[in-house]
Design a protein around this nucleic acid. Structure first.
Lengths: 222, 222
DNA sequence: GTTTCGTCTGTGACCTTGTCACAGGATCGC
DNA sequence: GCGATCCTGTGACAAGGTCACAGACGAAAC
């Protein structure tokens, strides 16, 4: 295996000779097709993950089958839940699903622990993104606990449509993003359509009035 | 100030000479009465906190004034949100409230960053609890997003009553614990009372049938 | 082309939870 | 005793989640 993947993680260039060599020796590449399960809830965590291409969706599933997105991991990033599971020697609490074809480098738990113990730059690398992730998780709690669906849906549409005005996305996928039910999304979208804010088609949504949506996303349910 | 407080944090005994000395020089003790605000949402974070006595409740507040408990910090612990805010140089996303009289040691941001940069044992100390806290936050999301109120309430009652069968607690406080409204808790408790599971009094709840509550907490809304 | 099949969307009925507006009770300080 | 303040109970309603289907669309098979 080549070491090209290290280019995705510039911070690793700072590793000491020995640690870098251990890292290179222990790393293996895996490739996942769209929809593949990178890790499942309850499963033990056996390797640290460096994503080098694609994006993984990390989400929870409730008893009823309802799901909620926690965060996404994209190329050049690592997954906090994996880190946290490895450090605490716990099982995964959520599942990771390849949202696109994914390439990742796996680093076995033993090597990971060794590197964490030995190498300050590696620790720096691993912990540098913890702050942002915690912020993101708390934001999810804030939204789920207090926010109404309509503004969250509007925000999700805007986030997904950066650039073009047309998004390829099913109602079910939006429901997972918000942690709600598909029917709720359908009803809300129908409301948006009646107000002329979006155009609906099977599996795609056209943003017709971005300002109105941004307004709603900011202002709350008003 | 004496250095007695270090006894609450055995891991800090591993600090190098210089780091320990910096820690001792920079630390200051603060005392908070019950109900005092240790930190508020949106506020900048100026010091790391070591709790040496009492407990702090860390919670979110929604627009409607509804609140939800994220976690508690007790004697011998530190607060992830504080760590995360310091590391990422962000503001607090939640508020911390003294649930009992609290004694804490504050370490100014500059000294904290210095120690994080210089001292491996200090980093070890700070990051060792990250895993558990993330687990706890994800559990909150799981509960809020998917779980019914009744089993969560039952679980909260059991958690609070470890030992005696009588708890000093208002409906409002339970509502904060679950992130719901006080009326909802009142109605649920009334239901529990009618089934003979609890006895209710102003500001206190007697557990009458712990098994039934544990059952409900495990089994879901059945 | 038309059929078929799987996926996606729409809808109504019903349940749980959250919100609002109040009405009493309990407790405490004075 | 008498307010003032907290705590609890209740009813009416809104929002969101669940369930059970009915179509509707699009791709692939025939």
């Amino acid at each position: 295996m080549t070491d090209d993947w290290l280019d995705c993680f510039p911070q690793l260039r700072a590793l000491e000779e020995g640690s870098l060599s251990l890292l290179k020796r222990s790393a293996h590449e895996v490739v996942l097709p769209t929809g593949a399960v990178a890790f499942a809830s309850g499963q033990g965590c056996e390797a640290f993950l460096f994503l080098t291409a694609g994006t993984v969706r990390v989400q929870l599933t409730g008893e009823g089958g309802r799901e909620i997105l926690l965060y996404r991991v994209t190329s050049g990033e690592t997954c906090v839940l994996t880190t946290s599971a490895l450090l605490a020697n716990e099982n995964y609490m959520a599942e990771g699903i390849a949202e696109t074809p994914v390439r990742a480098i796996t680093l076995p738990a033993a090597a990971f622990r060794q590197l964490i113990a030995d190498s300050a730059p590696f620790r720096e690398f691993v912990f540098s993104t913890f702050g942002e992730r915690i912020t993101a998780l708390v934001q999810v709690i804030q939204d789920v606990a207090f926010a109404h669906i309509a503004p969250r849906l509007a925000a999700a549409l805007i986030a997904r449509s950066s650039g073009g005005g047309e998004i390829e996305l099913t109602h079910q996928e939006l429901a997972v993003e918000l942690g709600t039910a598909r029917e709720v999304v359908s009803r809300q979208l129908k409301g948006f359509e009646q107000r002329g804010w979006v155009g609906l088609g099977r599996g795609r949504i056209r943003i017709a009035d971005r300002d109105a949506l941004e307004n709603l996303a900011r202002a709350g349910p008003g």
